[in-house]
Design a protein around this nucleic acid. Structure first.
Lengths: 110, 110
DNA sequence: ACTTACCGTAAGCCATGGCTAACCGAAATC
DNA sequence: GATTTCGGTTAGCCATGGCTTACGGTAAGT
């Protein structure tokens, strides 16, 4: 069930509220784990675990800086998610257009 | 923790694999609950429950047709998700640019 | 009217996964 | 080298939520 394609991994990762908070925070600039844990209602290990998931999803990367690990968003992962959404966005519009046409046909035919 | 804003609801909803399958199926055209349950490894009531979540997230809507309920994607919900992603996409690019600049500074300064 | 098809909901089971506490290693500072 | 800071990992607890079974209700067909 758990597909390995990037968009699927990204969506599963962002399905959790705490991970969304971390991700949104990182879109405003890189941060260390300690900094992320501050301002979140969960412990630091919890943040580490979430970062691991976000990393496996291709949404973030980290760079060592002394004992600190500076996390930043990975545009490639976000791009994959963007592609997935654009693709289904077009499909949604097309499907909705067909649906609207069918409604019009049904209303105007009798 | 569970925000009520449309993008948050949509992301939470699409975090589940079965719901993603249902949503992706509906982007290729409207379908009744029975049709959706066929081709999925879960029961029909499970599909109904997933559709309820997708509906509350603003991603789908349904139209009664006799005893059948024809579900179709709701472009507005998808649009909200698209806006959220575009916003953070820009943030990600800007943050990544700053990060790249910092790396260059660190490498060229000593 | 009876039957059939379609669907939403309630109750309950159980696996998933998010969380904390505790531990350990690595790097910087003194 | 001792201390401090930072962070990944493990073990285990427990709430969340996804699933099935069973039921009731509505609309179409005969």
């Amino acid at each position: 069930m758990a597909n390995r394609n990037p968009a699927t991994l990204a969506l599963s990762a962002l399905g959790d509220g705490t991970r969304r908070s971390i991700f949104e925070r990182l879109t405003r600039g890189p941060a260390a784990v300690v900094d992320l844990a501050r301002g979140l209602p969960v412990s630091r290990p919890a943040v580490s675990q979430h970062l691991k998931v976000l990393k496996q999803a291709g949404l973030v990367r980290e760079v060592a800086d002394g004992t600190r690990r500076i996390y930043h968003v990975d545009p490639r992962g976000v791009g994959a998610l963007r592609d997935w959404l654009d693709q289904h966005w077009r499909g949604a519009l097309a499907a909705f257009q067909h649906y609207a046409d069918d409604i019009n046909d049904k209303e105007s035919s009798p």
